[in-house]
Nucleic acid binder design. Sequence first.
DNA 1: GTCTATAGATTGATAGAC
DNA 2: GTCTATCAATCTATAGAC
Lengths: 199, 199
Amino acid sequence: MRLAARLFATQGYTATTMRVIADQAGIEAASIYYHFSSKEELVDVVMEHGAQSIVQHINEHFEALPPDANAVDRFKAALVGQMSALIKFGDYALAHNRLLTQLPDSVRERQIKRRERHQQLWTTVFDDLRTQGYLREDIDIALSRVFVLGFINSVQTWFDPKKGTLDKIADQFITMFFEGAAPATRPRRSRKKELSASS
Amino acid sequence: MRLAARLFATQGYTATTMRVIADQAGIEAASIYYHFSSKEELVDVVMEHGAQSIVQHINEHFEALPPDANAVDRFKAALVGQMSALIKFGDYALAHNRLLTQLPDSVRERQIKRRERHQQLWTTVFDDLRTQGYLREDIDIALSRVFVLGFINSVQTWFDPKKGTLDKIADQFITMFFEGAAPATRPRRSRKKELSASS
DNA sequence: GTCTATAGATTGATAGAC
DNA sequence: GTCTATCAATCTATAGAC
């Protein structure tokens, strides 16, 4: 139920009543119970759809890679894959991202288990980057991970398809992530002194 | 009401009932109406406290800077300021970040106006970085902005004070942001070919 | 498959005692 | 400032007609 996903995502679990969902769908609230046995089951299906869509979408981008793709290629594929999933299945993905803490215990536990596939997927991507030598030794891998995922998940709140494609955004992000935002012409900053003065 | 903030943040606006808040506070639901005239007023106060705490906290970090601080110093001050605000006033800040779409229209409009101070603050920081030459010309300032804020706002979900201070995390982030995650020993990647093959 | 009607529980909020 | 008691509205879910 696409409409339910949108409502859950924006209004929250409890605030989204069966009546409002039914209104949006042009039917009566009671009719929903022919398709879903309870509100819990409905939100569970919506959440699972969101989780599965994201993982599947990323895997499709992986499979489109040439066999000799390196860790950076896979990194970009995961990046574009998850970003486009967030845009394409926006309502489901948003529900999936924002509803976890609001759910009844039984549903929440099931969803946490489903997240593990997604977590594992990104762990592999970052481990490969490091073992293939694309990450500096002095950078914490867990930090760069939240760094990247924090960015990706914010995409839903600002992406405007009129202002550029996801592929271009991913390219800019990858450039920024690997090469940094500082201009090459400027010396690499005498940071030590500045930092101790400002902290 | 600190307890109300936590409940609003985790359960959402509608799901947080006056009775549950009262339970947590050890009083009866009716007693809340002596302090706040309605549930809307209560959530409005909580949200305003969150917004104000963050802006004020960042400004305190600004004021602690030496007079000759440059744009990068101010960048780090804003970074640490907002991160520590998110940790320190976690419940208020979380409520402030997640409740916007769930609120009744009247409350939501007021909160959106309050956000503008915060937006303006970061706009200034990034504009200064660019005019002082700390950002590459080929990087979109709006993109680097969501990049940074996406990271900062994710701090609440993973920060563990036992594993490192916010100041160290900010340092690592700044290094990664300006200098990039790629090791200096490796050539700056022959990306052009890889990209066209993988997209 | 969708409807009307309604049961039973819970909600935000008020009145009035202490 | 907090309580008990209660109201009107709204919620999820069910029963049974069509």
